[in-house]
Design a protein around this nucleic acid. Sequence first.
RNA 1: CGGGGCGUAGCAUAAUGGUAGUGUUCACGGUUUGGGACCGUGCGGCCCGGGUUCGAUUCCCGGCGCCCCGACCA
Length: 415
Amino acid sequence: MRQSKLFTKTRKEAPKDEVSKNAELLIRAGFIHKEMAGVYSFLPLGLRVIEKLKSVIREEMNSSNGQEILMSTLQRKELWEVTNRWGDETVDVWFKSALNSGGEVGFGWSHEEPITYMMKDHIASFRDLPIFVYQFQNKLRNELRAKSGVMRGREFIMKDMYSFSRDQKEHDEYYNGMIEAYNKVFSRIGLGEDTFLTFAPGGAFTEFSHEFQTVIDNGEDTIYINKEKNIAINDEVLNEDTLSNFNVTRDDLREVKTTEVGNIFNFGTQKCKELNLFYNDKEGNKVPVWLGSYGIGVTRLMGVIAEKLSDEKGIVWPSSVAPFDIHLVEISNGDEEVKKSADELYSTLSKNGVEVLYDDRSTSVGQKFADSDLIGIPIRVVVSKKTLAEGKFERVERKSGATDMVDESTLLSQT
RNA sequence: CGGGGCGUAGCAUAAUGGUAGUGUUCACGGUUUGGGACCGUGCGGCCCGGGUUCGAUUCCCGGCGCCCCGACCA
């Protein structure tokens, strides 16, 4: 994409109503626009990051036999009344609205109830199971206090997967496989080192649920970790019992601030019993389905990455989720030869599937480099009189600043 | 929801009971040209409602919005 056509502008200063680093950087670089507290729109660069994150997650979900769907945002009141989760006393984040034709609907803050109910259409026999479905959906939650930029919003994009299994064994197998899939996701998007599978409060059926917690300075959760023993425990469940369970003492653990980027949860058979989702086994017995739910906060991930993987100059996107592969910057100052060389490189790279943001604007070098650092594409390629004279292109790694001179074929294999 | 803070131009920031200055962005002209370059000209603003006052952006009351701490967080 030619940057001269990109409608978004960068800013030197962050708006005063944003204090969180993620929102400051994402707004300054033109990735997102704030609509209201806790609600952000995604601009071209931001949307590209979201789509990259989605495709990494999608690949791992598909590898785990997940089938992608898209459920509605509007949800039936009656469904949630069945499980006693419509009332504001039980769920305090509901957005609700009245239908002009009468009745009331809810805006989905979760999809466990609707999807379980929907599966009644498709699950009748043990032959129909297991089923694994997922979606990327905007969740709407009437949070009392939105905060920390895109980290805790009232509207956000979430990947939610649901597993429907015949029995506990089948459920556990998938659940454990999903832990592996999640680890792959976080590792692929550059958060693997600092993301921990964390034991957290369970529900009525299990002692623990599992959260994926990423270490971050302004995190809203506190967990206790021991890297050597590969143990992470949410402070909500840190007690003597838990400690002895894991055969550690408090002194073995280090306290860190984190944010929850993923959560996997075992519902057992309760949800399906409540919503009357049963199947017939081989003997013709009516058996309740096992439900598991697996979430990843996609927009929150964007914030975590922007915040964690950044320096004083701007964002440093990992290549797996960067909005473009290469930031091509021409320093022609009106020199036709330089301009032509950059144009040609842009065209060749684009034709060969390299995603390039081409800074073809007639603005100062300083402006271009500052914007480039702020936007944070992993590789910058500079075309100037200097590089033209050498017959090569200058390649700069955003993360390290490492610079070398390369030819076109090297850049073609840059993805 | 409890506590605290803040609403001035697209963004950032100042002063003021007598209608507002600066930086940046933007437009135009000129000089520059490997790190947000310089000079000049120009466009553009006091959150909403009520009160006090001859006069309110300023003081008072209410509302709305935003941020932070806490509580909450499937």
